[in-house]
């Protein structure tokens, strides 16, 4: 197992959490966009820490994705009990969800629309949709309050869970953390964290990883495009433990199709 990858995920997640704690002080969930802009323009070093938070978060997702692919290639599933594999797999949708709520709680053009869409997607789930929405979103009634709570709580859960997993083996070395901090800082100095002003346009694009779903939502009913289709790979990853070949084939097909939808959405 390439160690740098697994430690990279941990390090970037830790950096994202720490920088998140820093910018959570000037952030107000009561007026999310105003305080986000305040962090960006008024608070000293605010834009820097926001960018650091943004890029370390994006990097966590990318590294975790690579980490998962690597685990699949190296057939790591078979060497551990099924429940341990399932819990590890859960970290992928959890990180994705944390990243997504991160967009929602900044409440700019992208975040506002993303929140509204997520709420309606949750509601499209039969039977439990209403409760899911109440637990995770409810942005139309309660603003970004609930996504904000989920953003914070879920990070704690994931960090605790994966931290326990990794730190059981060895503590994250300070040197590794330093190196990843340098990479995240360099990224945040090259590009600013995205922030889109509300405007009267006829096209709004969601977070980059959501563009494929956004494209599909134009053609299919919300439940199929926004819930069933994006949960397929997670199901495949769970199933990988028992039927590795079928799961791998399905995952590849899904990744190919999502790649196409993502490109279509990005080119709009």
């Amino acid at each position: 197992m390439t160690k740098w990858l697994s430690w990279g995920v941990t390090a970037t997640l830790l950096i994202a959490t720490l920088s998140g704690i820093i910018i959570s002080y000037p952030y107000h969930e009561e007026h999310p966009l105003i305080s986000t802009v305040g962090i960006e323009t008024v608070v000293p070093f605010g834009d820097f820490f926001r960018a650091l938070h943004y890029f370390s978060g994006q990097l966590t997702l990318l590294l975790l994705w690579m980490h998962t692919v690597e685990a699949l290639i190296k057939r790591r599933a078979q060497s551990r009990p099924w429940w341990s594999w399932s819990i590890l797999i859960l970290s992928l949708p959890a990180i994705l969800f944390i990243l997504f709520t991160g967009y929602v709680i900044r409440d700019d053009e992208t975040g506002f629309s993303a929140g509204r869409i997520a709420e309606h997607l949750a509601l499209s789930i039969p039977w439990v949709g209403k409760y899911m929405n109440h637990l995770f979103f409810l942005v139309s009634q309660d603003g970004v309050h609930r996504p904000w709570l989920i953003h914070v709580y879920l990070t704690g859960l994931v960090l605790g869970g994966t931290g326990l997993w990794h730190f059981r083996l060895r503590l994250l070395s300070l040197l590794d953390l330093g190196c990843w901090a340098t990479i995240c800082t360099a990224l945040s100095l090259v590009w600013p964290a995205s922030l889109v002003a509300p405007q009267e346009t006829t096209l709004v694009k969601g977070p980059w990883f959501f563009l494929g779903v956004q494209e599909l939502l134009r053609y299919l009913p919300p439940f199929w495009a926004g819930i069933a289709y994006p949960s397929l790979p997670v199901v495949c990853l769970f199933g990988y433990y028992w039927r590795p070949r079928l799961a791998t084939l399905s995952l590849l097909l899904w990744a190919l199709s999502y790649g196409i939808f993502l490109l279509m959405g990005a080119c709009r």
């Binding site: 323009t41 008024v42 608070v43 000293p44 190196c179 340098t182």
Partner: peptide, 21 residues
């Protein structure tokens, strides 16, 4: 990393922050 931190601090001193939103 240390060099970048020095740069970030220097950049902040060169900047005029807005008084409020």
């Amino acid at each position: 990393g240390i060099c970048l931190l020095i740069f970030v601090v220097w950049r902040e001193t060169q900047r005029k922050r807005a008084p409020h939103v």
